[in-house]
Design a protein around this nucleic acid. Structure first.
Lengths: 342, 342
DNA sequence: GTGAAAGCGCTAACAT
DNA sequence: ATGTTAGCGCTTTCAC
């Protein structure tokens, strides 16, 4: 079977007795080209089944119209929302996205960064692993003036633009809610991590505990935030002499692990222990009782970060004045923390 | 801030008093080049921070070393496993992947196909939307001799290679299991879809019902496979005079919807109604009681499909003799269908 | 084993 | 408003 050669701008030019430059301009909707000529060229391109050769173009312009996205994992509700938002903005502006997962490994993150560097992405959007204190693997981008923006999990000190949620506020409100429901001993289950996400949540939690005046609190560092670590914590809880009556858990999966194990041990939720999770994952409505959680606007975060990056790339905006954008989150109260019935 | 120009093979050539051709060959480990020269060139490349320009290369070779993957959605356990398998094979063989989601829309699928066509992927791996009977948007690839392989949801009639799971077998076994547990009236909740996935499951289910001799059965077509459609079905179920005592549900999320609604109506699981889902999603162990389900080897499916494609691309294998590969799945029995205690 | 030269398809500076 | 020209960085044929 014979494969037809691809049509090029030269084929179009020849067909219409024009130059390749004119064709090139017309196909990019350059306004200097006569409207009629433009129409004719576009018509002809279609007829010949012309498709632009992005390699030739990238070779010439040194731009790929591609942005690299590096995230810890894809399979969370929040991340899907972020990526959807990014994709929306990208496709609207004619950009492509390539996505890499670090799976919480700094090494894989660096590897992804290198791959994207070698693919010559025009810009990068990244959310760090839980243990990132070292972001030197993003240095190569700065060296070549490739802009990088961070979101959600961001470096402690950076000149790059950051798009984050109000972790402090959210944690404060979640904890305050537990206080209002009458909890007296409220623990915060989280991760020992240098990431802003966890540090800020701890601070918000502690502030709410202190302000309450009447509550005791304790931060518990788990060795992971998953079903198993939640269940394992409950095993510990059973041994405590002064059991907590409120748990603010840094993610929903862990909170669900707690719920499953608490239920298995016939501890009533929320009467004996009330829980609030974080992320508003779909599982929060599947578990019984349904889990209260913090919802935050992933789609918007993704869109904002991407817009800032693309506007910077097209020189519309230098990203100097929007170096840190904080988005609001929302506490969703469900059965797991509703001790007071209205 | 000044941006250094990228090093090219010419820079290396000049540095070592060689020609660009030699450098190009050496960097591709071409054996005709003297070992010592090769070493020197690779050393120098590293020193200069050389990175190969994929655009120039693709422009020349007309190959992108990229394969396009189109799937209905990314956010399922099965799909993540498939993609992981694909990624593994790709990176091992020096290929890149670009991923597109159709979100069950034929239109978006076609759109993705076109984008990938225009990006000139070397090959395509696709799983169709639930309503695909028309795969004409993949024709463009065949026209240019770009190989396409399908997996999971595949076209009814096609010459392309297909990698699927044993939907008939799996459904047969799931239904048989419900029969063995003593169910008498077993319904199959699924989707009205031309896709092999649903059609084969229905056939397997019906075969098991017939063979049982003693069971009555009924296929129920829902208008979606999600939490809500599962709950909505239970509302209907409550009105039935002859309620089913067994449900084989075409996916886990829907089965979980059923469980939540059944529980809310104080119908005992599995005593009054036993359930088996499909996919072995993580939620099957979060819901209470835990959901029996069918697990299938996504990673292997992804790897096999990708291997076949890449071997075809490199001419090792023409894909003519492996046009249809069927992978085995496994029934995982949990509390939702365990009426008989061992 | 190595080199010279042409060309992949496009864009942009410059000219008209 | 359109054309001329050169060159982006690489691969590959052909020659030595």
């Amino acid at each position: 079977m014979h494969v037809k050669r691809e049509a090029t701008i030269y084929d179009i030019a020849r067909e219409l007795n024009l130059s390749a430059s004119t064709v090139s301009r017309a196909l990019k909707d350059n306004p200097v080209i006569n409207k009629e000529t433009r129409r004719k060229i576009q018509k002809c391109a279609e007829r010949l089944g012309y498709r632009s050769n992005a390699f030739a173009s990238s070779l010439r312009t040194r731009r790929t119209n591609t942005i690299g996205v590096i995230v810890p994992r894809l399979d969370s509700n929040f991340m899907s929302a972020c990526l959807a938002g990014m994709e929306e903005v990208c496709s609207e502006r004619g950009y492509n996205m390539i996505i890499g997962q670090s799976l919480e490994s700094v090494e894989k993150e660096a590897q992804n960064a290198h791959i994207m560097f070698n693919k010559r992405v025009d810009g990068v959007i990244a959310s760090l692993t839980v243990e990132d204190r070292n972001v030197s693997h993003f240095q190569c981008f700065s060296d070549k003036n490739v802009p990088v923006v961070f979101f959600d999990r961001v470096p402690q000190h950076t000149n790059n633009a950051c798009f984050i949620i109000d972790n402090y506020e959210a944690a404060y409100r979640a904890t305050q809610h537990l206080v209002e429901q009458g909890c007296q001993r409220i623990m915060h289950l989280t991760l020992q991590s240098p990431s802003n996400v966890y540090i800020d949540r701890i601070k918000g939690y502690q502030a709410a505990i202190q302000e309450s005046g009447c509550c005791s609190g304790n931060v518990v560092y788990l060795d992971g935030l998953n079903l198993e670590s939640g269940k394992a914590f409950v095993a510990q809880l059973l041994q405590m002499k002064d059991r907590p009556d409120g748990l603010f858990v840094a993610n929903d999966l862990t909170a669900v692990g707690c719920i499953l194990a608490l239920r298995e041990n016939n501890i009533r939720i929320p009467e004996d222990v009330a829980l609030v999770g974080f992320n508003n994952d779909p599982i929060s409505t599947i578990v019984s009782p349904e889990l209260s959680s913090i919802a935050y606007p992933g789609r918007e975060a993704g869109m904002l970060a991407t817009k800032a990056l693309i506007e910077h790339l097209s020189g519309e905006n230098s990203m100097k004045y929007t170096s840190r954008v904080v988005l609001n989150s929302q506490l969703i109260v469900r059965a797991s923390s509703s001790k007071i019935k209205h």
